[in-house]
Design a protein around this nucleic acid. Structure first.
Lengths: 177, 177
DNA sequence: TTGCATCCCATAAAATACCATGTGATACAG
DNA sequence: CTGTATCACATGGTATTTTATGGGATGCAA
């Protein structure tokens, strides 16, 4: 099992757009970069399409290879495939961590996500997200609200445990075609 | 079946947030870390989301792999899935036991759970919990109250045996979507 | 020449490694 | 068995190393 991104933290973004990547994430990026060896600085991929999301998504080289392999299983020339390419190839960029553990977010990307002096890093396992702090807070509150709106168990709303979410049949989704 | 955490104990937390892990738990953590061999120090995962709970939860590497595999069966992009990722990846961290059998709880985590000079460790089988002592006492009392409030058998409240709890159909849950 | 993007250097605070001790449990020799 | 040596555990302190963050100088391209 590949190493996974864990944890969340907030970091300063300076006038040049430099941000420190949480040290714990660096270990994962190193492990997920086939070309990395001690002394080198790992490469990662940032996906900045923002259809339905307000964060930049960070992938290890390995994780992006996997995702691309999955995209390539879609029918060549299909809309779905073109859209995935648009979202994950066109609107992404490959960057390298600098010697002090930082990466640079260009002005245009910062503008796109409203990032100014600080950014929140939130891990989700195989990827991590970079958010404008207020947007992240709002998103987190949204998720809590969703949980609060439902009565998940016979044990009262105050005793919700996320694990009950595993005890249910998956929700169905439309295929869109 | 993997080894299981058992027992409870209280340990000092020093100014740096260091706490000894009960020696008995260490054996379980070692057994549950695929990379561990004699002489090494096992890795574990701490989950600190506190929706409906007031404790930090400790997982072996193996137990967390299992949980993640289950999370990955949820539909990618569904609310449920995102919530699980938020709870168990974003609000978690991987740590390693140090040579003296301790782990470090950062200031922010200690603040979140009100932990200051002492912490209670309580085993629950596949995971263990870390509590602020007073919160743990309250929680324990709460559980006893719950038992006392119900008439479980025809044998009178003073003759309650927890094993009767096994003689009941599981409670149903809502799907929330 | 002005706006960026790099590279190099600097530093305070935080995290980690390293070393030390008392104490209780355990093993072992006599 | 019984005194003693050994070991594991819980806990404390100090020394190093990593982080996170800042600034300036350099190169280049619009």
């Amino acid at each position: 099992m590949a190493e996974r991104f864990r944890g969340e933290s907030t970091h300063k973004v300076d006038a040049k757009g430099r941000v420190s990547i949480p040290a714990a994430y660096r270990r994962v990026l190193e492990a997920g970069d086939p070309d990395w060896t001690t002394g080198l600085f790992p490469t990662l991929i940032l996906v900045y399409h923002n259809k339905g999301r307000k964060f930049i998504e960070g992938y290890t080289v390995e994780a992006m290879d996997d995702l691309e392999a999955r995209i390539e299983t879609l029918t060549l020339g299909s809309r779905r495939r073109r859209y995935m390419e648009h979202a994950f190839s066109t609107q992404s960029l490959q960057v390298q961590i600098d010697p002090t553990g930082r990466l640079v977010l260009s002005q245009s990307i910062r503008d796109k996500f409203g990032i100014t002096s600080e950014a929140v890093f939130a891990a989700t396992g195989t990827t991590f997200q970079i958010w404008e702090p207020a947007a992240h807070a709002k998103h987190a509150a949204h998720m809590e609200d969703w949980v609060d709106e439902n009565d998940w168990t016979d044990d009262g709303k105050d005793n919700f445990d996320p694990l009950v979410l595993l005890n249910m049949p998956p929700a169905s989704v439309s295929t869109g075609e």
